Amino acid sequence: MTGELVQAPRGDLALPLDLPPIILDLTRAWLWSYDSPHTREAYERNIRRWFQFCAETGLDPLEARKPHGDVFSRWYQETARRPPKPKTVAQVLSSVSSWYEYLHETEALDANRFKKTRRPKIPRKHSETVALTKGEAQDFLRAADADHGRERLRTAALIRLLLQTGIRISEAINAQIDDLGFARGYRTLRITVKGGDTITRRLPVETTHTLDIYLAERARREGIELQDLTGPLFATSTGQSWSRSKAFELVRRIAMQAGITSKVGPHSCRHTYASLAQEAGVAMRQIQLDLNHADVSTTEIYLHSRDRLEKDASQVVASLLE
């Protein structure tokens, strides 16, 4: 294998030139089988790492076996610019295994021999994403409300929406103004979730208030009536959809302005929502529904309980035995 690359017709993936044409086509089909563009980007990035490893070691990827996967895992960890976290390594290996599984399912290979590659152990209920305390979350909201500049109203509306509903950043920036609505007396937002399905979430009064102020200002700038305003719910100054990277930068900046020293990103808002809801006594099933998790075990990862010592049952049991 030479490692020479050829660009796909749509510019969607650079692949090793000497892979059989059917494998090139199946690889593109494998990537496009995922609905989320972010998943496709991540899987493309990870399969490129595997092809790079194959090129450097002279390995034909169609002849790879479990030992090659094990060596690749070590190679990836040692060649990364910064030591990758176990979860990252596991995700890379999972991506490559998914590629082989697709080739196997489409009968291009007789088996997925990469499947049993050893992967780092990851604590089932561990997450490195930061969840804010109630006080930090309140400071975060205050900092957003006090932001400066032309788009300060957009800042306040976005931060409050993320914190008070727990929706994903992609769901927020992909939402359209037409997705706002009413149902049974509640203000609602229809969002497109992972997999392409749509669900409707109830908006708190406080969230609705900041959104209304923001949208009214947008309409004023455009010189139109509020009811005639269309386009993305959160738009750039030119009316285009806001990017994830810009939204991420905004969340980080507001967190710093709030005096929060931990590494906060948009996903921290989801973790904060789940943790505060649990602390307030909301049922696990409801939190799972709010976050649109298929499995409650995923929801449990989002919970950062701070009162485990207080709730520890040891004193209760000890009292029973006295």
Score class of each variant (00 low, 15 high):
residue 10 R to W: 06
residue 10 R to N: 05
residue 11 G to I: 00
residue 11 G to P: 02
residue 12 D to K: 03
residue 12 D to E: 09
residue 13 L to W: 01
residue 13 L to V: 04
residue 13 L to P: 03
residue 15 L to Q: 12
residue 15 L to Y: 03
residue 16 P to F: 00
residue 17 L to I: 11
residue 18 D to P: 05
residue 22 I to N: 07
residue 22 I to P: 00
residue 22 I to R: 07
residue 22 I to A: 12
residue 23 I to E: 15
residue 24 L to Y: 09
residue 24 L to V: 10
residue 25 D to S: 14
residue 25 D to L: 14
residue 25 D to M: 14
residue 26 L to E: 15
residue 27 T to L: 00
residue 28 R to H: 05
residue 28 R to P: 08
residue 28 R to F: 01
residue 28 R to V: 02
residue 29 A to W: 06
residue 30 W to L: 12
residue 30 W to P: 05
residue 35 D to V: 05
residue 36 S to A: 01
residue 37 P to I: 00
residue 37 P to R: 01
residue 38 H to S: 09
residue 40 R to D: 02
residue 40 R to K: 08
residue 41 E to W: 04
residue 43 Y to P: 04
residue 44 E to Q: 10
residue 44 E to M: 03
residue 46 N to V: 00
residue 46 N to F: 06
residue 48 R to D: 10
residue 49 R to Y: 06
residue 50 W to V: 03
residue 51 F to A: 01
residue 53 F to V: 12
residue 54 C to V: 00
residue 55 A to Y: 05
residue 56 E to C: 05
residue 58 G to A: 06
residue 61 P to E: 11
residue 64 A to S: 15
residue 66 K to A: 15
residue 67 P to T: 02
residue 67 P to R: 01
residue 67 P to V: 08
residue 69 G to C: 14
residue 69 G to N: 08
residue 70 D to F: 02
residue 72 F to K: 06
residue 72 F to W: 08
residue 73 S to D: 06
residue 73 S to K: 13
residue 74 R to I: 14
residue 74 R to A: 06
residue 76 Y to Q: 00
residue 76 Y to A: 01
residue 77 Q to Y: 05
residue 78 E to D: 02
residue 79 T to A: 08
residue 79 T to P: 04
residue 81 R to I: 01
residue 81 R to K: 13
residue 81 R to E: 14
residue 84 P to I: 04
residue 84 P to V: 02
residue 86 P to L: 03
residue 86 P to N: 03
residue 89 V to M: 04
residue 90 A to R: 14
residue 90 A to I: 10
residue 92 V to F: 04
residue 92 V to P: 10
residue 93 L to F: 07
residue 94 S to I: 01
residue 95 S to A: 15
residue 96 V to D: 05
residue 98 S to R: 08
residue 100 Y to D: 10
residue 100 Y to Q: 09
residue 100 Y to G: 04
residue 101 E to R: 13
residue 101 E to A: 12
residue 102 Y to C: 11
residue 102 Y to N: 13
residue 102 Y to T: 11
residue 103 L to W: 15
residue 106 T to K: 13
residue 106 T to G: 12
residue 106 T to F: 06
residue 106 T to S: 09
residue 106 T to H: 09
residue 107 E to C: 06
residue 108 A to N: 11
residue 108 A to F: 08
residue 108 A to V: 12
residue 109 L to W: 09
residue 109 L to E: 11
residue 109 L to P: 14
residue 111 A to N: 11
residue 112 N to M: 13
residue 113 R to M: 08
residue 113 R to T: 12
residue 114 F to P: 04
residue 114 F to D: 04
residue 116 K to S: 05
residue 117 T to C: 09
residue 117 T to P: 15
